[in-house]
Structures are given as C-alpha cells and as structure tokens.
Design a protein around this nucleic acid. Structure first.
Lengths: 193, 193
DNA sequence: CCACTATTGGCACCGAGTGTCGAAACACGA
DNA sequence: TCGTGTTTCGACACTCGGTGCCAATAGTGG
C-alpha cells in the first residue's frame, strides 16, 4: 500500500534522537534546524515533513498517546467519583516507560525548562485537556465547553505541571507520588479555615 | 533628569493603539511589524525598544500591574483562610477599568484566542504566578518553590483561565461572577464543604 | 556655540517556516 | 527490460521576526 514511490530515508525517531543529542550538547536555542538536518543526513526541508516545527520535535509522537489517555479514562469505573476518576487517569497516563529513549526525564526537562518550549507546549496541552473535558462532560451530562469541564481540565493540567516541576527538581523523586501529593495538597489547601 | 538627549517620538500606548487597530483589521498573524511601524510612523527597529517582541504588544504594560497585585494580597486580612485570600485577590486583580483603551475584552480575546499568544502568554503568567506562590509561602511559612505554593499558583491560573474562557464566550457575562463560579465549581467537583 | 546625552533608524545578518517544482527512487504492469 | 505511476526528497527563493551595530539626529546645559 505505502510501499510504492520513493522510500523514506529517515523517521520521527531518527530525527528525535539526533535532535536530542544536539540539544544536550548546545542547548535547544543553540541548535539550528540546519544542524539537525545535517546530523540526520537529510535536507532541512525534509524535517518539516516529519515535524511541524522545531518546537514539536521534543514532543515526539505525543498525539498518539492521547487515544491511550481516552481509553484509560473510559475504563474508569462509573461508581468512582468523577474527580477521582480523572485524577487516577492522569496519574496512570503519566506512568512512562523507564527504558524510553530519549529518557522521559530528559524530554520533560527540555520541555518544561526551555522558555520557547514552555510557551509552545500549551498548544499541545490543549488536546490533552480536551480529552479530560469530554470525559467530565460525558460523566456529568454537561457540555464539554461548559464551566465545570473547562475548569477541571485546566486544574488537572495545573496539578500535573506542579507535580512535574517538583519531580524535575529532585532526581530521586517519584512522579506518581508527586502527582498524588499535588492533588492532596490542593484538597488540604481548600479545606483550610 | 530624563529630558536630556533626543526626545522620544512615540510611546507604548501609541504603538499599542496602532497595533490593535491593525490586529482588528487583518488579524494578529496577518499584521507584520513593518505595517505597525509604518502606522506608528516609526522605524521597525524602534518597536523593539518599546516591546521585546510582537507577542508582547498585546500585553501592554502588564508588568506594572504586578505590584498592584502584590499590594492587594498583602492587604488581605490574616484571619482569612489562605485559599480565600488568594481567591479574593485574584478576583480583585481582575476588576478592570471599563473605560480602558484598548478595551479589556478586546485585549483578552486577542490574547486567549490567538494560538501564538496563548503560547507566549505562559511566559507572562509566570511572574503573576510567582506573586501568588510568594504570598502563599509567606502566609504558611513555606518555601515559595515548594509543592503547595507551586500548586496553588498553577491552580489559581487555571481557575482564572477557565473563567476568562467562559467570559469571552458570553458577551453579557460578568468576569467577576465567572471567577467566583469557577472556584465554587471546583470545590463542588472535589466534593468539599 | 560647543559638548554631552539619549533616542532613533537604517543596514546587514540570522534562523524559522512556507510554496513550488523538478529530480530521485521505488513498485508494478506491459 | 522498459516505461509508468507514485511518493518522497531536496533545492531554491522568499517572508517574517528578531538582533547587533553604528552613524545620525535632536534635544539639554554650560
């Protein structure tokens, strides 16, 4: 089917590896697309056929994980309170493969500590949030663009981000634990007084 | 003191007005810096002496409002539960001048509906979040970069964003009301008193 | 009238991103 | 074996945002 025509000379994974190596050496801003293209052994123009922008390279194939996220949420028992279902779903979604290459920690460090990527990433988070908003809407029979689904999706992202932030600050920390702690510290915070 | 040297030929407000007019006509992406420079009657190079980037123009003089935000929080009674002090502070901070030019609604519509600005804005939110994290840390005698202050600042932003989102969707809505509703819907969602 | 000073604006340059188009490299059927 | 169709590749030219540099400008004050 797709075996006709000129064969591809590279892949998302190829580019990702070469790019991460350069990012580690010279930093994200210090690495030009020309340098990546050269390292991969491909024309600069070709990079854009695999990734929409330089900012998208560190994200890899993130889109593909969203179906998995949807499944995780859909599989949550209906008798679980919505907030707990969402919370467990988020925690589950962030159980990454410890053998991943590039390592999850390296990827997230790049994404969350590089200003240009911090900024660009909100555009990627949007799809992730949409998954949550739709789940909440479906569970509570609301419109996905209503206040509660929207709020929940934003707050879930907020909790994940602060969990990741602390995780990055501590080499030994467990991401799962920190995501749990973020949620429980929010609950305590709101119960004060 | 500052009256020596060549006098300025424009101002932040000048540029902002000209830019907003063009953004309204041709959209943000469709407006080049050359066009703005020409409309203001100034060299393109000069624009960068007033704003760090094109993305910063819609934000205007946002930095300057942060001191006000700090004062608002500092003025909150100490016997108020922290979460409520922060919440009231956020609501108070978002009481904008209805006569503002450009109008607050137009500005926020641009900022929250233009992808490039949605992305870039997280870099501006960072300072705003820092104000909250520091207040929470001070009130609870914690480090500002600890989990709770970080989480609270992220969640406060999340609540504000979802309030704004719904506000933009409804011409008649009150931002203050929606910020209140965002907080109360979160509390219900988390099944708290 | 002469320094001094701060802003301006032009120029050259870099890097990301896009549109276009011909060429390369394969599979397949004649 | 030789086209033919198909798909990817890569080069080129171009736009736009952003930066470094520097001379010119237009004031103030002695």
């Amino acid at each position: 089917m797709s075996s006709r025509g000129r064969p591809v000379v590279t892949s998302h994974a190829d580019i990702e590896r070469a790019a991460f190596r350069l990012f580690a050496e010279r930093g994200f801003e210090g690495t030009t697309l020309d340098a990546i293209a050269e390292a991969v052994g491909v024309g600069r123009r070709t990079l854009f056929r695999y990734f929409d922008s330089k900012n998208d390279i560190p994200w890899g194939q993130f889109d593909r994980t969203l179906d998995g996220f949807r499944s995780i949420l859909a599989g949550m028992p209906d008798d679980l309170p919505v907030w707990e279902a969402v919370h467990r779903g988020v925690v589950e979604f962030n159980r990454f493969d410890p053998e991943a290459d590039p390592p999850h920690r390296e990827r997230m460090e790049l994404l969350l500590r590089t200003p240009a990527l911090q900024a660009h990433s909100v555009l990627r988070y949007a799809d992730w949030r949409q998954v949550i908003a739709e789940y909440v809407a479906q569970r509570l029979e609301l419109r996905p663009d209503g206040l509660l689904p929207e709020t929940v999706s934003q707050v879930s992202l907020a909790l994940a981000l602060s969990g990741y932030q602390l995780w990055l600050a501590d080499e030994e920390a467990s991401l799962t634990d920190l995501l749990e702690e973020a949620m429980s510290s929010l609950r305590e915070y709101l119960e004060l007084g």
